[in-house]
Design a protein around this nucleic acid. Structure first.
Lengths: 193, 193
DNA sequence: TCTTATTGTACAACAAGTTGTCGTATATTG
DNA sequence: CAATATACGACAACTTGTTGTACAATAAGA
């Protein structure tokens, strides 16, 4: 006899959803298996049919959120405007914002930011290595710099409930990347007067 | 009768140290009070004389690591070279690297990065508001961008065991801040050939 | 200087709650 | 109707936070 994939998939999803709504409210260490199953309407033991423990739920969610290489837009896009693909990054972020803004936020998981960076690095690396011939060690630091800045700014934008229109944010970040912080500051200062 | 400040301070420190050595090894949620007191050589109950729970230990450590406004160098320093004070930041980081590299790392506490940013923002804000007249909303995003990049790069430098000499790192970051990513990339590319 | 009262410090034991497991009942499929 | 996937109930081991108690150190009086 076969399994009943529809039933189990639904149960697993219900448990995952219950976990997520709790994770949005409080730190993971304050969440009990009892909390999750009560919210989802199952026996506590059922949880262990699907997950080994509470961290397993988080890990599986995170896994589904790391962009796989093939689902990202082809690298050629990068070569068009030659800048950092912040807009591409924003789109991807917005698609998963429900999860991203929590995982990358103050009660999130710091290792998720690393996983995310590491999944994007090879793509940028390949794209830029076609154009530039770089000291690989320094290049790694530049990538870390760029991705930290992107992710940090992006998360901040979400916590601030998008006070800045998306278009303005993209323009600002591209400007910062393109011309540096100091130039950007003095330019903005002149505009504002 | 007075308290015995030396005795209690020592006990508290012993418990804090035991906690920290465990925190360096594993996630906070896997640490039990029993672990801590066994390592420090006390009864489990003693822990509760000094801390309300395990998170209290972490919070108190973090509190002691947030730079207070008065212990930071005066703002005038910023005005000299007019750049972002990355070197100042590095020095502060290195002084506390034992704690910073863990708290800002993959098993660290994401809220600590926020606290750190928020403690530095007012200083930079004041320093730059003397020189520039800026849209406050956009300026907040620029600060978030700068601090995310600094902290991210700094942490990465520690995880990579300082493969790049500190002087080179400072030069690189200043260049990225000053001239932007693209310029920096092409400049480095020419140097490398 | 010696004794005694007082209080700070650390400990042991307790109830309540959580974890992960395992055997059992129910529902679904062939 | 038989077989098995799915969900449930109960169990032992462990962790938590609290409370009452013993010991140690200090200060005052003789």
């Amino acid at each position: 006899m076969n399994k009943q994939p529809k039933v189990t998939a639904q149960t697993k999803q219900n448990l995952t959803d219950a976990f997520w709504s709790l994770y949005c409210e409080k730190r993971i260490e304050k969440i009990t298996v009892k909390d999750i199953t009560r919210k989802a309407g199952y026996n506590r033991g059922t949880f262990y049919e699907y997950f080994t423990d509470i961290y397993d739920v988080l890990e599986q969610i995170e896994e589904s959120l790391i962009p796989s290489l093939d689902e990202l837009p082809p690298i050629t896009i990068l070569n068009q405007n030659m800048g950092m693909p912040f807009d591409m990054f924003v789109k991807f972020y917005e698609q998963n914002s429900k999860y991203y803004s929590v995982l990358l936020g103050d009660n999130g998981d710091p290792s998720f930011a690393s996983k995310l960076k590491n999944s994007i690095k090879p793509i940028l690396k390949q794209a830029f290595s076609e154009k530039y011939d770089l000291n690989p060690i320094k290049f790694d630091f530049i990538l870390e710099y760029v991705l930290s800045a992107m992710i940090g700014t992006m998360s901040y934008w979400f916590t601030q409930n998008k006070v800045l229109p998306l278009e303005d944010l993209i323009t600002l970040i591209n400007d910062l990347m393109e011309n540096g912080v100091i130039n950007c500051l003095s330019k903005l200062s002149n505009e504002y007067k």
